[in-house]
Design a protein around this nucleic acid. Structure first.
Lengths: 153, 153
DNA sequence: TATTGTTATACTCTATAACTATA
DNA sequence: TATAGTTATAGAGTATAACAATA
């Protein structure tokens, strides 16, 4: 009987392991912030607006690497939760600005603390040197392949 | 004027970088296999069935870490593409079995080669030692946090 | 009763494209 | 005409829960 042609396995690819670990850490984080009523994507948008002047949807779409339509939808949800405000730009009647509400501003440090804790717990299995090496590697890969320009600090 | 309370930034978390790099590599792979008419999730299911005896949806759900309903939906799509076959289990009238069609079996090595190439291209920026270290780290994290039991070979 | 699998429903995330209002 | 933003639509991915058939 003929043997089937060789095909590399799922676990032969670093991309597979990246996806698996990424899903694990993101799902753990998502579960923790769900109690605060926000999703991971919402957290990212909120953090991008924290302690910043109001930003246009276009600009947020650019820095977050998503489409304008996606930003609108995300913003709609945060507005419905009274965490975000949409206001017309006084200088350009076509434009809008997005800014956190007072409640939104207050929530960000809480979410940030949850993110800190989640990260610490998840990567606790690694030594300090391993974490450093992992971060360096990931940053290299991200900047090598990334089109999006997140604030790198 | 009061300074806003400190909140750690998105880029302070390894989880953020994991998610960013994982998305980059998965999206690159998704774009390449789209020409063959399959998605990443479909590839994973197909690879799990390649050169294997027919498997029950339950078992696949277990090993892939998803619900039975999700497997059914994924299977429906692959069946519509004539890449998968669903057949009643002769030993248990409640049960079904899933197996690749001949076309499905033929497609897997092609997809595997694309995955190989995608992985090589994406991680080319790293040295061999860095890749080894990354793999070791990711496997450690995955097994430390994973409930799902993928074939680890 | 317990189990297998499907179906129904829902929600997040994301994209593309059409559309509106303004520049 | 070009740009800013929203809306409409679509589809992947995933989950929960109700259900039918069978064990």
């Amino acid at each position: 009987m003929p043997r089937p042609p060789h095909a590399s396995g799922l676990t032969d690819h670093l991309g597979f392991w990246m996806r698996m670990v990424s899903n694990q850490v993101s799902q753990a984080f998502a579960a923790k912030i769900e109690a605060r009523g926000v999703t991971v994507a919402e957290w990212v948008l909120m953090r991008a607006l924290y302690a910043q002047p109001p930003q246009s949807p276009s600009r947020l779409a650019e820095t977050m690497g998503m489409t304008k339509g996606a930003v609108t939808k995300l913003a709609d949800r945060l507005i419905a939760k009274s965490l975000l405000l949409r206001r017309p730009d006084p200088d350009d009647a076509r434009a809008q600005t997005l800014a956190l509400t007072a409640a939104g501003e207050r929530l960000v440090p809480t979410l940030a603390a949850i993110a800190d804790e989640n990260d610490r717990a998840f990567f606790r299995a690694l030594t300090s040197a391993e974490r450093k090496a992992l971060e360096k590697t990931l940053r290299r890969l991200a900047s090598h392949h990334g089109k999006t320009s997140f604030p790198t600090s």
